[in-house]
Simulated scan of single mutants.
Amino acid sequence: MIDQLKRLFDRKTYAAVRYDAAKQHANSADMVAVLNADPYLMVADAGLRLISVFDDLHYDRADLDMLSAPMRRRALKKHAPFEYFQRSGSVIENCAADIRIHMPKFRALGASPFDALRETSMRPQDYALLTPTQAAAQMIAAYEVDTAKERLAALVLKHPANLLRLFDFLEPTPSKAAVREMLGELLFLQRAAVAKEPLKSRRALR
């Protein structure tokens, strides 16, 4: 009798765990769909778990590159229906799913976008919320040129990045020549995208 009760409770516990996991997975997929449908947000890279927030259409290479308060508010508003809450100034968290969205802290005026996540402790299930320029830098650092070019093209067609700033922070070595060439090609692609809708009339978050 005792053994039968143990087996019964074991089955119930197992079913509950599987249901919660499936529900969380569905919520995650729904969240990605909602973000990608928003003109100001997108999952820039699912593998690297990067979320980009639209910044601007035109840049100067010396422009400040950081998440503004309106950019943070937009992200929090879109994540709130999926049980994400502001845990701290730099973290949005879903406690039930054990997922955190990290927002890099502002470090210095001349900080490299390649260093945006240098001091961030991300777990495999976590995301990073970044400017398009910071997201682009992470992809350049993570991928070979051909793969990076494909993913960056998808990014800049929706969220233009400060490509000249990225160019300035590249190491001046022969090994980076292909990356510099890629950024030049993306600059033309981005300029063409910004000159027409849906980007042409989009404005920075205020």
Rank of each mutant, 00 (worst) to 15 (best):
M122K: 10
P70T: 13
L164R: 12
H102E: 01
E181Y: 01
A142N: 11
M182I: 13
S175P: 00
A96Q: 10
H58P: 00
A69H: 14
K158F: 10
H79L: 13
M66S: 08
R191C: 15
V53H: 12
Y127Q: 08
D168F: 00
V91F: 10
A153W: 02
D65Q: 04
L186F: 03
N94Q: 02
H159W: 04
H159D: 03
P174F: 12
M122D: 08
A62E: 14
V145I: 13
E144D: 15
L64A: 13
Q134H: 01
Y143E: 03
M71S: 00
V156C: 05
F167N: 11
A141Y: 03
A135M: 03
R180V: 12
A108N: 03
A62M: 13
L76Q: 08
I99M: 08
A192C: 12
S112H: 01
I51S: 02
E83Q: 01
P70R: 11
H159K: 06
D65H: 06
T133A: 10
P81T: 04
G89Q: 02
V179D: 09
A142Q: 12
A135Q: 03
V91C: 05
M122Y: 03
Y59S: 14
Q125Y: 05
T131P: 01
P124L: 02
L64V: 08
P81I: 06
L48H: 08
R191I: 13
P70F: 11
R118Y: 08
Q134A: 02
A192E: 15
P113Q: 02
D55I: 09
R74G: 02
Y127M: 09
A128Q: 11
T120Q: 06
L186H: 03
P113H: 00
G47R: 07
K176R: 14
D115K: 04
P174H: 13
K105M: 08
L50A: 12
A80D: 01
R100L: 09
R87T: 04
A154E: 07
H58I: 14
T120W: 01
Q125L: 04
P113N: 01
D146R: 11
L187Q: 13
R165N: 07
L155Q: 07
E144G: 14
A178Y: 06
A153Q: 10
I101A: 01
L67D: 10
H159Y: 07
T120P: 00
D146C: 04
P172I: 00
A137G: 01
L76E: 11
E119Q: 13
A161F: 12
P104N: 06
H79A: 10
L67C: 11
A75L: 15
I51K: 00
E185D: 15
D56P: 05
R49Q: 03
L109K: 14
L164D: 14
L166M: 15
A75D: 05
R118D: 09
L117N: 09
R180A: 12
K77P: 01
A193F: 02
L164P: 01
I99K: 07
S88P: 02
